[in-house]
Every structure is written in C-alpha cells, then in structure tokens.
C-alpha cells in the first residue's frame, strides 16, 4: 500500500477534475472520493487488533479481504447507508478503486501484486514495481499535482463568482 496521503491526494485531484466536467459532482463528493481512497487500508486495524490474537482463539482469520476490490466495495456500501446522497456509493467505490490502481503498481519482493479480485479469482497480477509504500517521492509528486489542481479550481471558482455578479 502506498502511503495514505498519496492515495488521498490522488482522490482529491481526480474528484476536483471530475467536478469541472460534471456539474453533479460537488465539493462534498470530492471528500467522499477521498474517504473511499482510504478504505482498503482499513487492514491497518491489524495494528490495533492483531489477527494473531484472534487466530489464537482457534479461528482462522485475516484482514486481507478488506484490501480486495470486493471487500472495499462492501465497506463502501456500509458507509453509504449513513450518507444521504444518491451518488455516495459510486463515488466512495471509485475512490477505493483508485487505491487499488495505485497499489497494484507497488514494488513487491515476489514481483507479483496481490489477489485484488479475490474471492472471484486468486490471481495476483505482476507488478511493475514503480515505488515502495515507504518511498517519499510519490507523496511529493501528488502534493505538487494537487496544488496545481487546487489553484486552477480556485481560479475557476473566482471567475464563476465574478460572472454571477
């Protein structure tokens, strides 16, 4: 998994650009996209409740399904039950998919990514190994891109307000 900031910045950039193109996508939808981009990393719950302790109770257990497409879409749908917005599920789901897209490019020791389609398929696609989750440069690139998009967005907003007056 790339660091969470890179995922969230990518989602912010993606959502903001989409809001330029589609009037239905508003600022709060960008936030929903950012929330979706964090969902696969809910596996980090393992830092608080180690799966080893649960297995110690005699139950086979792994948080990994949270880091699959199906698992993150299930969590997206659960969250959708508490958001009054008809676009909530597709947008939170799209955020989760953007996370998987970035993570499928990560460098892995075996040269293969992870079974993101499980349980439909156990196939792990080969990874190009572009970066490590602990590399700093992906976040720096993402910050630069997001800043440019933020500035363009502000400019567009100002010109819309001027036109409206």
């Amino acid at each position: 998994m790339a660091d969470l900031l890179t995922h969230v910045l990518l989602a912010y950039s993606l959502g903001t650009v989409l809001s330029w193109r589609y009037d239905r996508i508003e600022k709060h939808h960008v936030t929903l996209l950012m929330i979706g981009a964090t969902l696969p990393d809910l596996t980090r719950i393992g830092l608080i409740i180690d799966p080893g302790y649960i297995q110690g109770l005699g139950l086979p257990f792994s948080y990994f399904p949270l880091h699959t497409i199906l698992g993150s879409l299930i969590v997206a749908f659960i969250i959708t039950q508490f958001v009054n917005d008809e676009l909530a599920f597709p947008i939170i789901g799209a955020g989760a998919l953007s996370h998987h897209l970035l993570d499928s490019l990560l460098l892995n020791a075996s040269g293969y990514s992870y079974p993101l389609f499980w349980p439909v398929s156990s196939y792990s696609p080969p990874t190009p190994g572009l970066y490590l989750s602990t590399d700093m440069w992906p976040a720096l690139v993402a910050v630069a891109v997001s800043l440019i998009i933020w500035m363009i967005d502000r400019k567009k907003l100002k010109s819309e307000l001027t036109l409206g007056e």
Binding site: P51, Q55, L59, P60, F61, S62, Y63, F64, P65, L66, L70, G71, I74, V75, F77, I78, Q81, W118, P119
Partner: peptide
C-alpha cells in the same frame, strides 16, 4: 449493515 458486516467477517475467516 449487519448483513454486510457478517459477510465481511465471513470473508476474514475464509481468507484466513
């Protein structure tokens, strides 16, 4: 929410 949470926990056990 309850049905999906049960489904999710089932996946945790299955994968484990």
């Amino acid at each position: 929410v309850i049905i999906l949470t049960v489904l999710l926990i089932s996946l945790f056990v299955w994968y484990g």
